[in-house]
Design a binder for these strands. Structure first.
Length: 198
DNA sequence: TACGTGATCACG
DNA sequence: GTGATCACGTAA
């Protein structure tokens, strides 16, 4: 079943990032459903320098300041759309970046969108998974409990010891905050992004 | 390790 | 207006 509003509204973005591992992200576009199991996430809090909201609200990040449970999608490096789950209550701009999925539903659709025949290339990175699921900036601000994009709990059993944490990737500009162990991933997944933080 | 790519944001 | 920068991916 779909995650409740309360799940997203909580004031602990690292807990939410950890709990999103094993949940299922889905989209339905032109009648085509596709998605997969979340295997890698990163937490961002407005209180630390790695976060787009650290310096306050701008045109780009304004949806981060809404109540949790909506999508924050932005363009990175001029090429890649990045999908985040906004969390916490309005005014407290926290978010979780979804970095990798295990593709499960609508694999044919995703292969088509990615112009590949290699499932491994579909969703093993934040820029790839958005393209595979058809997520772009038009999804910015959309609610995550609707019928276009949503997250389900399908009772996948993840043991705490299967989840590893590490520093986040690609945010060296954040100084000491770049060292926070706020990336979470399934240890033996094989679908985790390859940049893997070094 | 190098670089494409274009929106964004902090300047002024 | 302008220019440096960027929560990546691929190829080499």
């Amino acid at each position: 079943m779909r995650l409740s509003a309360e799940f997203y509204l909580r004031n602990n973005v690292t807990s939410i990032a950890r709990q999103l591992i094993g949940k299922v992200l889905l989209t339905k576009i032109d009648g085509l459903v596709s998605g997969g199991i979340i295997v890698e996430t990163e937490a961002y809090s407005f209180k630390e320098k790695g976060c787009h909201a650290y310096r306050g609200m701008t045109k780009r990040n304004e949806v981060m300041f809404e109540d949790g449970g909506v999508a924050y999608v932005y363009l990175c490096y001029g090429v890649h759309e990045m999908f985040n789950v906004v969390t916490n209550v309005s005014g407290k701009a926290d978010a979780v970046l979804i970095r990798a999925l295990e593709p499960v539903i609508g694999v044919e659709t995703m292969l088509e969108r990615m112009q590949t025949e290699t499932p491994r290339r579909l969703t093993s990175g934040p820029g790839k998974l958005t393209k595979a699921l058809g997520i772009d900036r038009s999804f910015n601000g959309k609610k995550l409990n609707g019928h276009e994009i949503w997250i389900e709990d399908q009772n996948n059993r993840i043991k705490p010891r299967e989840i590893q944490s590490a520093k986040r990737i690609g945010i060296d500009y954040a100084g000491v905050d770049a060292l926070l162990p706020w990336r979470f991933f399934l240890k033996n997944s094989g679908w985790v992004s390859k940049l893997n933080g070094k």
